[in-house]
Design a protein around this nucleic acid. Structure first.
Length: 257
DNA sequence: AGAACCGCCTGCTTGC
DNA sequence: TGCAAGCAGGCGGTTC
């Protein structure tokens, strides 16, 4: 599922491919996306990531805001022919960008709203002190908190599990029980893990592919996610899978306190 | 405030 | 082999 590194990968590829280009036409294939107007003759100014959202800024002041949710992909294809599960298309003189989304959870919005990251993006103006001030006394479980897009943007289930493993924090801990060193560890490892994942062009466990249909390489870096029943790479005990808020959570009960 | 659950979806895995 | 049930989960919503 596309989280920050996957969306960042797409954003960079789109920036290189379609920034400054004129849209010749666009087409909707899915009733759920009905109402998206034809984007014909707009020129793309730039492409930005906000959390897990891709924003395609246009010269008319609007921006196309794409959220891929679970199984959404953006795919560059020279042929305008609809690929399997193609939901929406924008066309250029030399090819097309398709939203491909088997489960149809993805959303596309045309909006004039200027979104800011408000310090929620770890690679933006994020400030640990104000984060702890705002969220450090919450009773909510730490894993739920770091997946809360209002608190920090871009972290989903896979990277949340990996971050807490590297930080050696039990995902079931209440946020309010963490000390300053533990908070520091979480965000240090969050930056490290996400940076490596961006370098690896994302985690391709099942669905994720980049703009050109290529798998990422970060799945080989995962230490706990999807590793239920296997041995912890650090201590050799079993990695456990539990359900937390309806989501699969993987961790090492021996290493994560 | 926070946790639990639902609905949105469909491809894949599992079990008989 | 085939078919049905179960599962996966980001996010917005509701309920307790």
């Amino acid at each position: 599922m596309p989280e920050l590194p996957e969306v960042e990968t797409l954003t960079r590829q789109l920036q290189a491919k379609i920034s400054g280009r004129k849209i010749l036409s666009s087409k909707v294939y899915d009733d759920k996306l009905a109402g998206i107007k034809n984007m014909r003759d707009r020129t793309i100014v730039t492409i930005e990531r906000r959390g897990k959202t891709v924003n395609i800024l246009l010269d008319d002041g609007n921006s196309i805001s794409v959220h891929l949710r679970m199984t959404g992909r953006l795919l560059w294809q020279e042929s305008p022919e609809r690929p399997k599960h193609g939901r929406w298309r924008i066309s250029f003189s030399d090819g097309n960008v398709f939203l491909v989304d088997p489960r149809r959870f993805g959303t596309v919005k045309i909006t004039k709203e200027v979104q800011t990251d408000s310090g929620r993006d770890l690679f933006g103006k994020f400030d640990l002190k104000s984060f702890i001030k705002n969220y450090g006394s919450r009773k909510t479980k730490i894993k739920s908190l770091i997946m809360d897009q209002r608190a920090i943007s871009g972290i989903g289930n896979i990277y949340a599990c990996e971050i807490l493993f590297r930080a050696e924090i039990d995902p079931g801990r209440a946020a309010a029980t963490l000390n300053d060193d533990e908070w520091k560890k979480i965000f240090l490892h969050a930056r490290k893990i996400l940076t490596v994942a961006i370098k690896n062009r994302g985690t391709s466990i099942s669905d994720w592919r980049d703009l050109y249909g290529c798998k990422g390489e970060n799945q080989y870096e995962l230490k706990v996610y999807g590793q239920g029943g296997k041995k912890c790479c650090s201590c050799g005990n079993d990695i456990v899978r539990i359900k937390q808020g309806g989501r699969g959570t993987f961790y090492c009960p021996n290493c994560q306190k």
